[in-house]
């Protein structure tokens, strides 16, 4: 508080005061879990970016080398090798690319589609609301994995199709969250006064309504990425996700399953990769929720 008073009452220089999001970021930094989650994700993104430089995809990630098969962790192969002699460390590193692209890709598509539908439903109300929300309810009532299985089996297995399949369930979540947020913001007086100011409707939605709905959307986004990464891995585990021999984490788990007794690291390490990534996303999501709405926590 004292800090704020200072920035306000000083001389005539133009002072950039702290916006709401700067405040939120400040609060977020005080949350240890969220900071750990953020750092982990940052590291993961860096790993995903540098993995092509560290390992050659053709030879080291999918190239088989029967001489080295099923070696435990060692200095040469940090995480050991699988039953085809492929280096597990390289595969897990490369796998982060798949998980991140699928997770963020599917959720971003879901975000765009869901936000548009949710904004229309929340803003227009009436028949539009009914139509859109009942349609969304239909999707909501079917388990995510089931929808994804159906879509992938219709479109065929590929990474792009997997992203499309998973974006469906992400979109339903966003649609609900955005609709609820828009409905509360829609009747605020500043929205009414923007009408009185002569702003066209689309501008009011874009400049006044959606920015005020951001908090729940951001939280939903981070949490949804975690869920989607798990779904993607589950689908790959079932063999309808990213096609072999790509090193998707779920596929690695599935591949190591038969060797669980003698080479447990084949399952444990990719499993840990999934676990930590999703945990980091959830920590960040929870931290964001508390930071965006401090009243909730106290």
């Amino acid at each position: 508080m004292a800090k704020k008073a200072n920035t306000v009452s000083t001389n005539n220089d133009v002072i950039k005061s702290r916006s709401q999001f700067q405040e939120v970021f400040h609060r977020l930094l005080k949350n240890k879990g969220a900071v750990i989650g953020m750092i982990f994700l940052l590291v993961l993104v860096i790993i995903a970016l540098i993995s092509p430089l560290a390992f050659d995809y053709e030879t080291q990630v999918i190239g088989q080398n029967m001489a080295d098969r099923l070696q435990g962790p060692s200095a040469a192969h940090w995480f050991g090798t699988d039953e085809y002699g492929r280096d597990l460390f390289a595969r897990i590193m490369w796998g982060s690319r798949y998980s991140l692209i699928i997770g963020f890709g599917a959720v971003t598509i879901g975000l765009v589609v869901g936000t548009i539908l949710g904004a229309i439903a929340g803003f227009k109300g009436g028949i539009w609301d009914q139509l859109i929300m009942r349609f969304i309810d239909i999707f909501y009532s079917i388990p995510n994995i089931m929808i994804a299985v159906v879509i992938v089996s219709v479109l065929g297995t590929s990474t792009v199709n997997l992203v499309i399949a998973l974006s469906f369930s992400a979109a339903t979540g966003f649609c609900r969250v955005v609709r609820a947020a828009v409905m509360t913001v829609r009747d605020q007086e500043y929205v009414e006064s923007s009408y009185a100011m002569g702003l066209p409707t689309w501008k009011i939605i874009a400049k006044h309504i959606l920015p005020n709905c951001l908090s729940p959307i951001i939280v939903q986004y981070t949490l949804q990425v975690g869920t989607t990464i798990i779904s993607a891995s589950s689908l790959s585990f079932l063999g309808i996700g990213v096609p072999a021999p790509a090193p998707e984490w779920g596929a690695l788990l599935s591949g190591g399953r038969s060797r669980m007794r003698d080479a447990s690291y084949l399952c444990v390490l990719p499993g840990l990769a999934i676990l930590f990534t999703v945990l980091a996303l959830n920590l960040l999501g929870d931290g964001l929720r508390d930071a965006l709405d401090p009243k909730l926590k106290k």
Binding site: S19, E189, Y190, S194, M197, G198, H208, P211
Partner: peptide, 21 residues
């Protein structure tokens, strides 16, 4: 609206958009 006729609303607490300066 806004040009020829302007309107001032009842509650100044909620009449301003919190995310814009």
């Amino acid at each position: 609206r806004g040009n020829d006729v302007a309107m001032i609303f009842q509650d100044p607490m909620t009449a301003l958009n919190p995310v814009m300066t």
